[in-house]
């Protein structure tokens, strides 16, 4: 078993210094993702680890009229215990679909978003509602959309020598949402994927539309989403079919897979928007 060096930084500043000195540093908050993947009796880690769950500045929760701001070390259980109505629908449902209560007591929102090998449950939903994240490095801090955690090819990305510190979740979510989790594993597996479709429907018109499918890759057609704005609902089957066909063809082109489940979910969500 390789012996790793473990650090317990006293502040965020200490952590950033550590990160600068050790670019390969593994930052562990809950640790469920890195431990859940390992089946051996002893765990294997990179040469340097920083444990950060004790840092109070990464656990703070504040709320304004428009946003909920949570520290990256907030556990998923902690999010669920916020007063009812503090989370936009269907975020509580998305969180409850993750693991079980004992896993959610350990797993954190930051860990769920920063997984380097794939996208996990929260990312597609938070990207759909334009949640923001604060990224800190020794050069300063900046806010960016959570959607920036996906690169142009739809693969997970995260800036070097930086840490995700806070997530700003808008309290108002679109009035239509459809969420489906695929796969049957407690921990993310190759077949796990998440489908989210959200729309704002007002006066029988689509005001905004988002559709994200994410697993090992993220799939989203931002330009096409814009073309659906202004459409009258209910959509007829004649309207829905060309949209499904377009999404299906793009999905094959971008991911190389013909995914029956994706096509069925796209059709299902458009049908639900139309009340079918």
């Amino acid at each position: 078993m390789r012996i790793s060096e473990i650090f317990y930084p006293n502040s965020l500043g200490d952590l950033l210094e550590l990160l600068k000195a050790n670019p390969e540093l593994l930052i562990v908050a809950g640790g469920t993702e890195v431990v859940g993947m390992q089946a051996s009796k002893s765990l294997s880690f990179p040469a340097q680890i920083a444990s950060i769950s004790h840092l109070p500045e990464l656990q703070k929760t504040t709320r304004s009229e428009q946003y909920l701001e949570v520290g990256c070390c907030t556990t998923l259980s902690g999010l669920l215990t916020l007063s009812s109505g503090a989370l936009p629908a269907p975020l509580p449902q998305v969180i409850q679909s993750i693991g079980n209560p004992a896993i959610r007591n350990t797993a954190t929102i930051g860990g769920n978003l920063c997984c380097k090998r794939r996208f996990m449950d929260l990312w597609p939903f938070l990207a759909c509602i334009d949640a923001q994240m604060e990224i800190r490095s020794l050069h300063g801090n900046r806010w960016a959309g959570v959607s920036h955690l996906s690169d142009d090819a739809g693969l997970p990305q995260f800036p070097e020598a930086s840490i995700l510190t806070r997530i700003r979740i808008p309290l108002h979510a679109p009035n239509f949402s459809f969420f489906k989790k695929l796969g049957n594993s407690r921990f993310p597996s190759p077949e796990s994927a998440y489908f989210v479709c959200m729309a704002e429907i007002s006066h029988d018109k689509i005001e905004s539309f988002r559709l994200i499918f994410a697993g090992e890759r993220a799939f989203r057609l931002k330009d096409h989403e814009a073309t659906l704005i202004g459409r009258r609902v209910p959509l007829s089957q004649k309207d829905i079919q060309p949209i499904v066909d377009y999404y299906s063809a793009e999905f094959v082109e971008k991911t190389g897979n013909d995914n029956y489940q994706f096509n069925a979910l796209t059709e299902e969500s458009l049908g639900r928007i139309s009340g079918q």
């Binding site: 473990i6 317990y8 562990v28 640790g31 469920t32 431990v35 859940g36 765990l43 880690f45 680890i49 444990s51 769950s53 004790h54 556990t75 259980s77 209560p101 004992a102 896993i103 007591n105 350990t106």
Partner: peptide, 15 residues
């Protein structure tokens, strides 16, 4: 908080 101690690295128990 109830946790699985098999899924928890021992170093997280500090303090």
């Amino acid at each position: 908080r109830l946790i699985y101690s098999c899924l928890t690295p021992a170093f997280k128990a500090k303090g």
